[in-house]
Design a protein around this nucleic acid. Sequence first.
DNA 1: AAGGGATGTTAATCTAGTTTAACATCATTG
DNA 2: CAATGATGTTAAACTAGATTAACATCCCTT
Lengths: 194, 194
Amino acid sequence: MNIDPLFTYINRFVDLTEEEKGILASQVTVRKYLKNQFIVQQGDVCRFENFVLSGCARTFHVDKEGQEHIVMFAIENWWISDLGSYLSQTPAFYNVQCLEATEVVQFPFENLEQLYEKIPKLERFFRIIIQKAFVASERRIVRNYSLSAKERYLEFRKQYPAIEQRVPQYMIASYLGMTKEFLSKVRSQLISDQ
Amino acid sequence: MNIDPLFTYINRFVDLTEEEKGILASQVTVRKYLKNQFIVQQGDVCRFENFVLSGCARTFHVDKEGQEHIVMFAIENWWISDLGSYLSQTPAFYNVQCLEATEVVQFPFENLEQLYEKIPKLERFFRIIIQKAFVASERRIVRNYSLSAKERYLEFRKQYPAIEQRVPQYMIASYLGMTKEFLSKVRSQLISDQ
DNA sequence: AAGGGATGTTAATCTAGTTTAACATCATTG
DNA sequence: CAATGATGTTAAACTAGATTAACATCCCTT
């Protein structure tokens, strides 16, 4: 499978020359996962940063009570990994599991420093996308505190309509920080509202 | 005031030459704010990224009901701004207000691109610190969902003992996503526990 | 086509945390 | 030093959302 979607994505932020594309292509690999397979498992060291070419995956943490807490979903053109684990090569706090057959471009940790050396623009690229991710994450914290369950669900539907179609409802409830029963109630209220 | 604490901080991640320090010093300014002054106001465009030399400040959002939600505190050696507003020069989502007289090093947005050009290492530096901030922010989301109010308070005390001393209790409650009355109850429970 | 696992709904009961309100303490400033 | 505003406490009444449990649906798979 070709990795053009990755180049297209990167070129939204920095311009890669053909030579740089070649170097990048030589340092990454494409891998296919089946539905339900794990790309990262909590406790293992995360070896790759992954760019999704096709499919859908979730990142979640299992707490000491055994509760799952989903922190993100990823579909085409999203990045997914346990960044904390990847960067410091320490045990992962999260699981990353495929919800559909999923194809990713993998950036092995061992190649990362070389990649930054050979293509300094990538330093800039990753800075920019992580800044965006950080801003979104902080805003999510505020939303979680300031919005009701119903409002959070409506925001989610507006912001990620594509994801809502592809992911079971109980996982959306987990992402939104409520029980699946309560999300079901919220939804039935919304239906009777209009 | 000299900006050596900034250089010390940056040198934990990348090595700046004396020349680079000179360039950096020429592109930033030091500013003092009084207690209660605003470094950024919600709705204005955030013009500076700020590094705290001394003092203490908070970042908070006021929602449509007029509720305040504190997303972070900053003391010496922390960064504070509305990053989303700063990077895209759009109206700020947050307020940044000093809780004590506070001295900061300001990185004006106009100088940022030049600074990256003249000192490419800074690209790397900011990538690294923002990665850390992002990882912390995502973990905070999980903690907010998986821990009780009491547990969140204990975590906060353990993680930021210096901040707890300097900030009024009702602001800590806001940071932790609970009412000041409930935090007071949690605290009195903790006292009677032991 | 039958059976079983995964998903979704409904409703009763429960609880962590909110709201409201009254009061206590303390620091600042006039 | 009196007064005022900012901070912190306590307790009663309330509510958003959790828990539990029973049932409904919709798949896959054999």
